[in-house]
Each structure stands twice: as C-alpha cells, then as structure tokens.
C-alpha cells in the first residue's frame, strides 16, 4: 500500500473513531473509495481495529454488497425482486450479459468498465422491471432498452 492509501484508510478509520463495532461502515467507506475491498486494506483495518482478519473476511463475504474483486466503472444491478421477476426481468439480465460477454460466474468485463449483477429487490417495484447504474434507477426496462443503455454508456466512454 502507498502512503496515500494509508492516509485514506486512516481517515476512514478515524471518522469512525476506530470503533470495531463500526467495521461494516468502515468497509462501506473503503468500498466507496476503491469500488471494492482490496485485501491489504482489510489486513490494515484488522490491525487497527484489533479484529482478527478471518473475522473481517467473514463479514466481508457475508454481505452481498461487499466485493473483494475490483468492480467495473459502471455497476449495473438488475432487479430480480418478485415484481420485476413477474414482469420479465430475466431476459434483461440475459441480454446485458450477452452484449457484454458476461455470465453467472463472470460479472465484470475485462476492460473494467462494466459489472452486471442481480439484486434481490431495489424496492422500485412500481417501476418493474428496473435496474440501476451506479445507483441511478432505470425504470420499465426491456432487452431493447438494455441494449440502448449499454450503447449510450459505451459511447460516453468513447469505446
């Protein structure tokens, strides 16, 4: 880790008073900064919070939102809650994966631009089927709209 990294982590830790019971909030901040949880960062906070690494690893892998792998610049979450499922969310997921060459086991594109994952419910059931791109909600999706969305995002990136 660079001194820059250590400063980032120290700032995050001190904003949570080095309180071990706030380890989830600490990890959320780390993930917000790096877009994932780098292993060294967890080792570092383990020492600073006085928690075993195995415990921190256990917490990090328990919760769906934490990722130990680097995520794409655009994280696309496709809602597969009941309402979205009933209104055909699966074809949207399949379409996105098809376009981006992703699968059930591969969530992030090689260029590090896109991550596609499902979420059990965004609570935007009135807009079903819905998806989010970096927390911005896109309502009433169709495979067609999904294609356009990816196209738009790719264009914005100049690829």
């Amino acid at each position: 880790m660079t001194t820059e990294d250590i400063k980032v982590l120290d700032d995050i830790l001190s904003s949570h008073d080095y309180n071990p019971s706030l380890v989830i909030a600490v990890m959320q901040d780390i993930q917000r900064y790096y877009r994932y949880l780098p292993e060294e960062s967890l080792t570092y906070i383990s020492q600073k919070l006085g928690l075993p690494e195995a415990k921190i690893y256990g917490v990090a892998t328990f919760y769906e939102n934490f990722s130990l792998d680097a995520k794409g610049k655009y994280v696309i979450k496709i809602c597969d809650g009941t309402a979205c499922h009933v209104r055909n969310s699966v074809p949207i997921l399949e379409e996105m994966r098809k376009i981006l060459g992703l699968s059930d086991s591969k969530h992030t594109t090689d260029d590090g631009l896109f991550t596609v994952e499902t979420v059990s419910c965004l609570g935007a059931c009135g807009l079903a089927p819905a998806c989010t791109v970096n927390d911005e909600v896109y309502p009433a999706m169709t495979p067609e709209k999904a294609r356009e969305l990816i196209k738009k995002l790719k264009e914005a990136e100049g690829v």
């Binding site: 195995a54 256990g58 130990l68």
Partner: peptide
C-alpha cells in the same frame, strides 16, 4: 479461522 460466505456457500476458513 472463521465462517466466510453464507447460506449453502458458507465455509470455515482462514482469512482470504
């Protein structure tokens, strides 16, 4: 060692 992951993927393992 501790638990990692959850549900039917849960395992007991050292960190990482």
């Amino acid at each position: 060692i501790d638990f990692a992951y959850r549900g039917s993927n849960a395992i007991v393992t050292p960190a990482f």
